[in-house]
Amino acid sequence: MFQILLTNDDGYDAVGLKALIEALSPIARVTVVAPAKNKSACGHSLTLDRPLRMICVQDDFYKIDDATPTDCVYISVGNLFKDGYKPDLVISGINIGANMGEDITYSGTCSAAMEAVLHGIPAIAISQVCKNMCQGIENGWDFELAKQTISKLATKILEGSFPLDERKFLNVNIPPIKAKDCKGFKITKAGFREYGNDTDRHLNPRGEEFYWIGLHPLIWKSSDDKSCDFEAIKENYVSISPIMLDMTSHSDIKNLENWLNN
């Protein structure tokens, strides 16, 4: 039987993770190892300054105290899957909120997929784009399109092959619509996110200042051919982007050599 490892960055009790379990349990044995609390925007970070405790919640379901999604994959591969055995697929999500453009570098959801491919395991990061952050939780979002999408992709990988080379993963974003309104899948590139600065300064009762970092609106620079992830979501397509961990700007190597030698 196929084995899928699931994790996320919204925490082990997140509604998106529950939806992911529902979608994938019929096609594989599912093991869940997730952070004990929300770790959104933690990036590809490992916890090196303190020990981590893995707690069994129920059969094949674990939470790790104050762990990052990267920790969850790293610890799982080294301890739950032994003697050279690895899961057939790692899936991270279903994240509440988009992970498109440069947000991929912040994303704990995507970072779990990064960690998986570093261990030679095929991986998918999947995120549910929301019109606002309460849409999925307070309004009873059904995740139906996300569940249909991840079930189809996982089945295609498990029964066939992973379409990417090593150290590459699939980044999937689901538009904020009902499944019946989706136009299909679109293969996309990561877009050019435009950022602002949403920082709120406050004072506590002792007069000490602190800051809340807020949420930026999804604003991006349009691509000429409308081929980026943001454009696909805007047009009600599921966005599937191939992401590589090699961040070298290969096109600039020769220019840099010329610059240095002149």
Rank of each mutant, 00 (worst) to 15 (best):
I4Y: 06
L5G: 02
L5C: 03
L5I: 11
T7W: 12
N8D: 15
Y12H: 06
D13V: 14
A14K: 01
A14C: 07
L17A: 05
A19D: 06
A19E: 07
L20M: 15
I21Y: 02
A23I: 09
R29P: 08
R29L: 12
T31P: 05
V32S: 01
P35T: 04
P35H: 04
P35R: 02
A36W: 01
S40A: 15
G43Y: 11
H44S: 15
S45M: 08
L46G: 11
T47L: 11
L48Q: 02
L48R: 06
D49V: 03
R50K: 15
L52C: 08
R53V: 14
R53G: 02
R53W: 12
C56G: 00
Q58H: 07
Q58W: 10
F61Y: 11
D66P: 09
T68Y: 01
C72K: 00
Y74D: 11
I75S: 02
K82F: 11
G84W: 09
G84K: 12
K86S: 14
P87V: 03
V90H: 10
V90N: 06
I91M: 05
S92P: 14
A98P: 09
N99C: 13
N99Q: 08
E102K: 00
D103A: 12
S107Y: 04
G108F: 06
C110I: 07
S111C: 14
M114Q: 11
E115F: 03
E115G: 06
A116Q: 05
A116W: 08
V117Y: 04
G120D: 10
I121F: 02
I121W: 08
P122S: 01
V129P: 06
N132E: 05
Q135E: 13
Q135C: 09
I137M: 01
E138I: 10
D142C: 10
E144A: 02
A146H: 04
Q148W: 09
S151Y: 06
S151M: 05
S151T: 06
K152N: 10
K156C: 12
G160P: 03
S161A: 02
P163R: 07
D165F: 10
E166Y: 12
R167L: 07
N173E: 05
N173R: 01
I174N: 03
P175W: 08
I177Y: 07
D181L: 12
D181H: 13
K183C: 09
K183T: 05
K186H: 09
K186Q: 14
I187L: 07
K189A: 14
A190H: 05
A190I: 03
G191R: 06
R193P: 11
N197K: 07
D198P: 15
D198W: 08
T199F: 01
R201K: 13
L203Q: 00
P205S: 13
R206H: 05
G207E: 04
G207M: 02
E208G: 14
F210R: 08
Y211D: 07
I213A: 10
G214K: 13
G214Q: 10
H216Q: 12
L218W: 07
I219S: 02
W220C: 09
C228I: 00
D229Q: 03
E235M: 14
E235T: 08
N236G: 10
N236C: 12
Y237L: 10
V238T: 10
V238N: 03
V238Q: 05
S239M: 13
I240L: 04
I240Q: 01
S241G: 01
S241Q: 11
S249R: 14
D252M: 14
D252V: 09
D252R: 02
K254V: 15
N255C: 07
L256H: 00
L256S: 06
E257L: 15
W259Q: 05
L260M: 02
L260A: 00
